[in-house]
C-alpha cells in the first residue's frame, strides 16, 4: 500500500499578464509526489516547470487550484504564515547559489536557524553537521568568494537541509557548474532522497541530471505530458 503523498497538486493553473495578453504558465496541472521521491521536472523554456516548482515551494501563488504539502493548503496561508512555513517545510537550492556574500559559509547555513527557537550551541552543532554532510566541514569560515562554484552550491544545499525540511526544491542546481561539481551536487541530492528520506523536486534542462531522479515529469505549454 502506497504512503500518503507528501505533495498533492490539484488542478493547478497559473496565468500571467504580459501587456494586454494573458499567458498560461500552468494549465490545470495535477500530480502527487510521494515521500522520499526524487522528482525531476523537465521541459523546454516557458513550459511552466519553474512556475510549478515555485508554487509548490510557496514562493509564488496559483491563479486557481490547490497545492497541499503534508495536508497543508499552501495557497491559503497568509504572507507571513507562508514565510514561516517555508522556513520549516522547504529547503531551496538555486541555480546561482544565492549565498549572502558578506557572510561566511557557516553564517549562511545558520540563517534559516536564526528564525527557530534553537539556542546558539544547538545551531552551531546543526550548522557543523550540515556542512560536514556536504563535505565542507573544513570550510566553515570561508566567505562565498573564497569557495569554488561547486563548493558554493554545496553550502547552499547545507543551508537548504539545515532546518530538516520535508521538501528540498532545486531550480537548475547544476546550471552554473562544471561536470565534476554537477555530479557531486546531484549525488548529494540523490543521497538526501534515498538515505535521508527527503522529498526532492528538481528542475533541470540536462537529461544527464534527470537520470539521478526516481521519476521525471515532462511539461510542455503548462501541462504535464509525460
Amino acid at each position: 500500500m502506497a504512503a500518503d503523498p507528501i505533495v498533492q497538486v490539484r488542478d493547478l493553473s497559473k496565468l500571467y499578464r504580459q501587456g494586454d495578453i494573458d499567458v498560461t504558465a500552468l494549465n490545470h496541472v495535477s500530480v502527487d509526489i510521494q515521500p522520499a521521491e526524487f522528482v525531476v521536472l523537465m521541459g523546454p523554456s516557458g513550459s511552466g516547470k519553474s512556475t510549478l516548482l515555485h508554487i509548490i515551494a510557496g514562493i509564488d501563488r496559483p491563479t486557481s487550484g490547490d497545492v497541499l504539502v503534508q495536508g497543508i493548503n499552501v495557497g491559503n496561508l497568509s504572507e507571513s504564515d507562508l514565510a514561516t512555513w517555508r522556513n520549516q517545510y522547504v529547503g531551496f537550492v538555486f541555480q546561482s547559489f544565492n549565498l549572502i556574500p558578506v557572510l561566511t559559509a557557516a553564517e549562511n547555513v545558520e540563517l534559516p536557524l536564526l528564525l527557530t527557537r534553537l539556542d546558539r550551541k544547538s545551531r552551531k552543532e546543526q550548522v557543523q553537521a550540515a556542512l560536514e554532510l556536504v563535505g565542507l566541514g573544513d570550510r566553515l569560515h570561508h566567505r562565498p568568494d573564497q569557495l569554488s562554484g561547486g563548493q558554493q552550491q554545496r553550502v547552499a544545499i547545507a543551508r537548504a537541509l539545515v532546518t530538516d525540511p520535508v521538501l528540498i526544491v532545486a531550480d537548475e542546481p547544476t546550471g552554473n557548474l562544471d561536470a565534476k561539481s554537477a555530479s557531486d551536487v546531484l549525488d548529494i541530492l540523490r543521497s538526501l532522497s534515498s538515505r535521508s528520506g527527503k522529498t526532492v523536486i528538481m528542475v533541470t534542462h540536462d537529461p544527464k541530471a534527470a537520470g539521478y531522479g526516481t521519476r521525471s515529469l515532462h511539461l510542455e505549454k503548462g501541462e504535464i505530458v509525460a
Binding site: 514561516t84 517555508r86 522556513n87 520549516q88 531551496f92 544565492n98 540563517l111
Partner: peptide, 15 residues
C-alpha cells in the same frame, strides 16, 4: 535585491 529575495525564500518576513 536578490539577497532580499533569498532571505524571504528562507523564511524572513517583510517586517
Amino acid at each position: 535585491t536578490r539577497e532580499v529575495g533569498t532571505l524571504r525564500v528562507i523564511g524572513y518576513s517583510r517586517k
